[in-house]
Amino acid sequence: MSQGNILIVDDDPDITDAMSVVLGNKGYEVRVAHDSDQGRERLKEMKPDLIILDVMMRTSQEGFEFSREIKQNEEFRDVPILMLTGVKEKKGIDFKSAAGDESWLPVQAFLDKPVKPDVLIEKVQDLLSSPKA
């Protein structure tokens, strides 16, 4: 029985594989993409309950740009996003101007890599149980 569908977008296959195991063990259905193009493809095939997004992929802000794109899409607007980045990186991209502006940076949570399995699970459960925006 699936606890929910999760899409992980990260260019490091070792990270996505490890996360898939952690989340798979907890009963989540996990799909993986390694850049935003693949991510877009996956979104055509599935409607995730949660998206886990890396920031630096082919460009240093690909993840942020993709998150914005997702939130501009009618269908996926309500899907919570967990961003894999440290607080410092987050500041580096003008987080302040985004703080009060959901449409600019529509991200519900941040975690710095490497994410400990128990922390990841806790965060995911947290995001999936909170009422949708």
Partner: peptide, 10 residues
Amino acid sequence: LAAVLSSLDL
């Protein structure tokens, strides 16, 4: 290291 640690965690 993050990738190594993620694998080791498992």
